[in-house]
Design a protein around this nucleic acid. Sequence first.
DNA 1: TCTGGGGTCCTAGGACCC
DNA 2: TCTGGGGTCCTAGGACCC
Length: 426
Amino acid sequence: MRAIVDCNSFYCSCERLFRPDLLHKPVVVLSNNDGCIISRSDEAKDLGVEMAGPYFKAKPLIERHGVATFSSNYNLYGDLSWRVMETLRMLMPPGTVEVYSVDEAFLDLSHLPPAQLREMAMHIRQTVEQWTGIAVSIGVAPTKVLSKVANRLAKKNKAATQCVLVLDSEHRIRQALEKTPVADIWGIGFQYAQKLQRWGIQTARDLQQMNTAWGHKHLGGVTGVRLLRELKGEPCMDMKDELVQKKMIATTRMFGSPVTALKDIREAIATYTSRAAEKLRRQQGAARVVSVFVVPKEASHNSYFRHGPTISQYTSLPAATSITQELIKAALSIVDQLYEPGRTYKKAGVMLSGIVPDDAIQGNLFRGPEQPQHRLLMSMMDNVNFAMRDDILKFASTGTTRNWKMRQELRSPRYTTRWDELPGVG
DNA sequence: TCTGGGGTCCTAGGACCC
DNA sequence: TCTGGGGTCCTAGGACCC
């Protein structure tokens, strides 16, 4: 059996942890640039505040009801996420926890007899809440897809389920699937949901009864087959190894306000590249391909799509590297080619790919071995910046004026990672 | 004069997730 | 005026090889 542990309204719960006055009050958290709503407390959901909706549209409603509103505070959420995941690792045998996202983890419960599943799930839920202050919901079922179905229902009926739902019989699975609209199945997004509606397939139960050949044809080939099998109770998605390397690392941002000067874009791209390189070194990787994209403002003006066409280009380095200076150099030369004077840009980003383990870098005949002092400098920078949880040391090319920086007007203090922002008691 | 079949690798693009 | 920032997997199609 598998379980999915999912933090309830995670970002809102993090904010409330240090603001007990907001308990049982409506809370929302905004995306970068305070653009849209990415987390809502139950009370905010009940008021009709929509998920992923633009902030400016929901603002009248939010103000009318005095909803507490926060810009996203990733230092805080990252730290609390780590505490939740560590708690799970302490409660479970080694290798049975798969961190799936900042607020979710799959558990492999195959070591437990069926009679103990609910008891164990309750124990996990209570311990996580007691140790971290974060409330979670847990869905337990034979497959990952079914555990997500269970989790959704547990969350929807918190009082009745105590946030834990175990689907351990054909009958319970069937009932749960009947209560689940296809659009709420993990793996069915907007496009597929539309398609299924047209076929008259409304609930997860309807979909479960389709055969796999049909799934192959209409739901994205082998992906669809896997989804149907999981719905039927046959596990097809393995628990993932925690140590796998990412194949692509990206850092992209919307600018706080539109940017026209080449200098500003170069600064932004140098900054994003430093961040991406840090992530790359954290997984002991080196990248051979650097790509850069920019999004001009005017292109998207009267278009249905939020983003206009992105203008991008990539370059393959002679050898894979994780040295920030080398990656910045490559990225900036692309910026110089993409930039057109007179245009206004609203977004830019850097992507690193062609990633290999950094102890297996393919050498190049025309390039000497990597300079050891560069590596030393990198690990020194990483250590200082990690210890301070901020960019204390950075490259000059990342700039000092930072006209392009994102807006975060409503950010809460970094309670758990900065000495000068510790919560006071008194 | 006439134009197979099987394979690999790469890229672009579409779908999905939180 | 104002709509985020990461990621994954899969498929189709083109280039190229023998």
